[in-house]
Amino acid sequence: MAVTALPGVIDEDLGPHVSLAQDAWRRFSRNPLALVGLSVVIILVLGAVFAPLLGRYDPNALDMKLIGTPTPPSLAHPFGTDVDGRDYFSRALFGARISLEVGFVAMLVSISVGTIYGSLAGFYGGAIDAVMMRFVDVMLSFPSFFLILTVEALTNQFSILVIMLVIGLLSWPGLSRLVRAQVLSLRERDFIVAATASGAGDGRIMLRHLFPNAIAPVIVAATLAIGDNILTESGLSYLGLGVQIPTPSWGNMLQKALDPDTLSAPWLIAIPGLLILTTVLAFNFVGEGLRDALDPRSKK
């Protein structure tokens, strides 16, 4: 159709263009705790990725000369050695690998299941929603850590892959509730009605309109979930139901360190303990920072 510009053209300047990501980063970077958390996470990830280069020793190799008595931190062994004469620094680095891997993969599993489950319940509503959410209620009425313990004990499978799957598959219900609530509130918004009025189908509405708007709290929940998963993995490994020795994990390092014979070597407890604490705290700080940064309402 032939178009002529109509009078009343808007000629105000919009100001410099700021993308959504730039805007979020600006708000994130104004939060000192979030920045500290992010730095710690980056250091941990780099340490885990380059563990074979950074650790001078094989984490599982026993040093026969040092076996029996743990040695305190020294130049040769920055974190000392454990009771079996293994380099504690290398074990901590490879432990970070395991912890981050488990935390991340389990998060991917729980986020995928939780997001799909919650979106479907929220989008279709009615009886489908009611049935799906009652199942979530049942899942949530089990204390999840003990449920995971039970599943681990029953399956008697302690490979890292199984641990990731078990943690992931048992920790999605809370997240699905979050996503469902998001979708329910978004579903009634005018821009969804506008998409329907434009002829958009269910798939397009979910992928292009609901999902991008529901993703911010999911990213926050995902970040917090990594911390939680690391804690769960450490707990399981500490109890002997997680990563099995000799494969190093912060949880089983802690367990080994609590052996009555080695209580005289406090660094063996302090190092994995502090690593778990710092890591979980760092992920929580990043999560909190993202929560503020991604919320379009907090226009700081």
Partner: peptide, 8 residues
């Protein structure tokens, strides 16, 4: 404000 998708 509500009728435009803020992510598009």
């Amino acid at each position: 404000y509500a009728s435009l998708n803020p992510r598009m």
